[in-house]
Nucleic acid binder design. Sequence first.
DNA 1: CGATCGATTGAGCCCTCTCAAGAGAGGTGG
DNA 2: CCACCTCTCTTGAGAGGGCTCAATCGATCG
Lengths: 236, 236
Amino acid sequence: MATIDTSLVSQLPLFAGLDAAELDAILQEARSLRIAKNASVFEQGEEAHSFFVLLHGHVRASKTTAAGEQVVVRYVGPGESFGVAMAIGLQRYPATATAVDDSVVLAWPSSAWPRLVAQYPSLATNTLRTVGSRLQETHTRVVEMSTQQVEQRVAHALLRLAKQSGRKVENGVEIDFPISRQDIAQMTGTTLHTVSRLLSGWEQRGLIESGRQRIVLREPHKLVVLAEQTPGDNAR
Amino acid sequence: MATIDTSLVSQLPLFAGLDAAELDAILQEARSLRIAKNASVFEQGEEAHSFFVLLHGHVRASKTTAAGEQVVVRYVGPGESFGVAMAIGLQRYPATATAVDDSVVLAWPSSAWPRLVAQYPSLATNTLRTVGSRLQETHTRVVEMSTQQVEQRVAHALLRLAKQSGRKVENGVEIDFPISRQDIAQMTGTTLHTVSRLLSGWEQRGLIESGRQRIVLREPHKLVVLAEQTPGDNAR
DNA sequence: CGATCGATTGAGCCCTCTCAAGAGAGGTGG
DNA sequence: CCACCTCTCTTGAGAGGGCTCAATCGATCG
């Protein structure tokens, strides 16, 4: 197995504060894996055997309810860690991780976590920061779902996706991985039908351009206005 | 100032894995504060000068939106830590903490956190577990808001409150601190009117007994059935 | 005993969901 | 390389859950 290139990962938040030798020692224990598009990295309820860092591609984390409904927890982008169940005291993965693109991950056995943390305390404080900011993001989502209408929530979701995984293209900013109406519905607590209607409307007004699992924001600023609109604002 | 009694706090999750001497050293740096009912411990947006452990009482953490709407993030019970902004890399508190009862807290200056963590690495891993389980809880809330109707969400909220802060009384389990219809609405993403209607209905059916900022669950099991009901289940 | 805060309840509406059908795009196997 | 098949997206019609607006009642506290 080829050694993993230190320079690729030295800038990641997970490894902040570690020197080259330390980083190298940690990387020695990782395996690199390719995950094909639409394949799962791990499944909800499965024993949390490993934790991961995403090197290339995009991974969707989603939870399935007892009734079989799915909710998208988040999209993981390159450089982010995921599957850190062990670090937060879980024996099993609380969600399913699926590659939405052909992806490459680094994987460490969960059993190595306690030893690594003991040896490199920065790992704990870095992970604490990461988990903390995810908690903030999730709280933001709760606040949005509690106070905003569907239109505002969907607009916010698109803007966030574009900011986190946007790629500049000719006509605006394109979300850099395949994403369906259904996915957006599962992120915003609505139905694919409502999302479809909203996007159709926005497309007609020139705010976006979209196709099968593809969305380009043409007028992000106008979407921001929409996203911040209060129910009574319709009459401008 | 009186020294803080070690035995009171030695069992808290935050201090797991620390011996008596270590715990004592950490407690040396804490101040104990009384917070009157309805007084705030800290305000959203304020500089995160301290982090806290709640000894007695109950504290509500809530976020206020730009539009002035409030959402209850969680209720803190005795033994839990809160205001750990610094640990998760925040300079300011992301929410307001208000005592809902006369309460007693331990407070450490945030500036002591980096040094304490360096000296006692268990603090970081313990806090990571705590923040992780809050993240799980918040995800559960997102899933509920995405997939369940208001009635189910309110039922779940009451059951959780009773489990976390319930006190056995003559007729059932009473939620152990003052909580209004408005508070429940802000926890479940609905309005106080809808909560009032639901509770009135449940009271008539004998499931609960309630008054001003006071709720007793008389038939928790029937509430569980309600909470797990699917929209189409009405016809039994 | 008055004032303030929380709770109740009615009426009406509308945003969003459900149910339904069909069209288009892309992938795949023969 | 074409035909088929599956998955995604679109759009209409109708219904209903929960919100808004409004008024009143009741209880707790100073």
